[in-house]
């Protein structure tokens, strides 16, 4: 790697991590979300149209995990320049702007969701602009997003987690990582009765089964 020592500091930082566009040219036809085989599109057409639980999948989004120092103002400025929003520094909060959303995960960790096709471009911008010690990991293939809503959405979450979902302590925008049944999920409230669940790929079938089971008494409506 001796031939890179003449580059600038930022270029140097970029070359020291391997950045890779992980998407094929033919993204649309090849990609299979973790719940691809559940075929939500068909279920939305032929399944129940009324019920207390509504569920949809936001498949194939770009998931980027950022680790950096919340006290490093240069880093914070760089992030804001790239995403157009500042990192949420208050624990358990999130910010959203357009198609970008950022969730506080830990004092030095944030989960950024972007449109699937933009993941590599955002990652590259970080590699170009982000100073200091940080890590950025593309984890798009490792998880998927479920949107859960409806009159009984809170009850379903109560059956599945030990979190207090009362609006007075869990307002819109709050985000938690927690146990979901016997798996885990990162859950954000996007509206009074609407929640975003980010779940791990390998557990997706288990969680899908769990949600169907827990919805039985309310009725489950799949949305495409």
């Amino acid at each position: 790697m001796s031939d890179v020592t003449s580059t600038t500091k930022l270029e140097q930082a970029a070359t020291k991590a391997a950045v890779m566009n992980q998407l094929p040219a033919d993204k649309e036809s090849l990609g299979q979300s973790p719940l691809h085989h559940a075929d939500f599109a068909s279920a939305a057409k032929r399944g129940a149209q009324k019920g207390g639980i509504h569920l949809s999948e936001l498949a194939l989004l770009g998931h980027l995990t950022l680790r950096c120092d919340a006290g490093n103002l240069e880093q914070l400025a760089a992030v804001e320049a790239i995403l157009g929003v500042p990192l949420p520094l208050t624990p358990l909060t999130s910010v959203e702007k357009g198609a970008y959303s950022v969730r506080w995960m830990s004092p030095d960790e944030w989960l950024i969701l972007v449109p699937g096709l933009e993941a590599f471009s955002i990652e590259s911008q970080f590699r170009d602009a982000m100073p200091g010690h940080y890590s950025l990991v593309n984890s798009s293939g490792g998880s998927t997003v479920l949107m859960l809503s409806g009159d009984n959405a809170v009850e379903l979450l109560q059956k599945s987690t030990t979190i207090d979902w009362h609006l007075s302590v869990f307002p819109v925008g709050k985000v938690v990582s927690t146990l979901f049944a016997k798996s885990t999920a990162t859950i954000r409230r996007t509206d009074d009765q609407r929640f975003e669940l980010i779940i791990r790929r390998s557990f997706a079938d288990y969680i899908w089964l769990w949600i169907q089971d827990a919805s039985l008494e309310y009725g489950l409506v799949i949305e495409a």
């Binding site: 624990p91 358990l92 830990s106 030990t162 938690v176 146990l179």
Partner: peptide, 12 residues
């Protein structure tokens, strides 16, 4: 002390 709220033991 990092999340700033109470959680159940099973998360720990």
């Amino acid at each position: 002390p990092h999340c700033g709220e109470y959680r159940d033991e099973e998360e720990f």
